[in-house]
Design a protein around this nucleic acid. Structure first.
Lengths: 128, 128
DNA sequence: TCGAAAACTAGGAATTATTCCTAATTTCAT
DNA sequence: ATGAAATTAGGAATAATTCCTAGTTTTCGA
């Protein structure tokens, strides 16, 4: 059973209000401004707990570190494999059908209702 | 320009022959058996170079670490967010269309022709 | 309202996957 | 064959994340 904690509310709020798929470090920097006493371990722990509870989602990128999203609206994720930035995009897909097909083929249970594609963002492409 | 190296061939071969989407550590253990002198940094460096060259693909999981795949056949990836295992599955998708839609919405360039879904595998689900 | 049990926190140490550094070796074009 | 460029082994360094502990906050039944 989970108790209320002010820190967890603050952390959820930061992710909820961000459109930038912040990293744990970025979340820490923001909450830290409002609450000088908060510790990094609290931020990491709570981000993981919030993701466990399905309140936010945790995204793993190819650049180092994870990113977090509140998923207000239905969308998918395009991840740049150089800078690790996450871009939201819309695409009409029948996730239920994907899940059904998936289950026939491999021992997999539920999936999130969002897919991920990996590639290179324009900014990183232009650098090379 | 890239020179030939025996070590890189061995590393590519391990990924090519594996159906298990090995982690860098697992690749190291396998090549190490055949070649006691190979170092971990060589394995890590070459896995990244091979991924850069498009010979293999690098997959980021929510459990710690990356996994690698040779992508012999066309397939997609389902990743368990607890154990990090990667499962291959087939699903008919028009990747070109996804990419076109994506480009209209966000500054993103090319994408791999495989999507990723995240969820829980049966084994991890039954543990809880 | 009080007190005990459970949940949570701050702070910092520990862990661990990965990258970086350097001197020595290998590759390859000429 | 020779020199420049690429690569390696080995280990140190890095950095994101988790773990540990003592103290604090929350919850809830009496």
């Amino acid at each position: 059973m989970r108790n209320y904690s002010r820190q967890r509310e603050q952390i959820l709020d930061v992710v909820r209000k961000s459109y930038e798929h912040p990293t744990a470090e970025e979340v820490y920097e923001i909450v830290h401004k409002a609450d000088e006493k908060i510790s990094k371990s609290t931020v990491y722990r709570n981000l993981n707990e919030l993701a466990e509870d399905g309140k936010i989602i945790k995204i793993s990128t190819l650049a180092n570190g994870y990113r977090f999203d509140y998923m207000k609206s239905k969308h998918h994720h395009a991840i740049c494999n150089e800078c690790g930035k996450v871009f939201d995009f819309e695409y009409n897909l029948d996730i239920q059908d994907i899940q059904n097909q998936l289950k026939k083929q491999v021992p997999f249970d539920t999936i999130l209702n969002c897919i991920t594609v990996v590639g290179t963002c324009n900014e990183c492409k232009n650098k090379n």
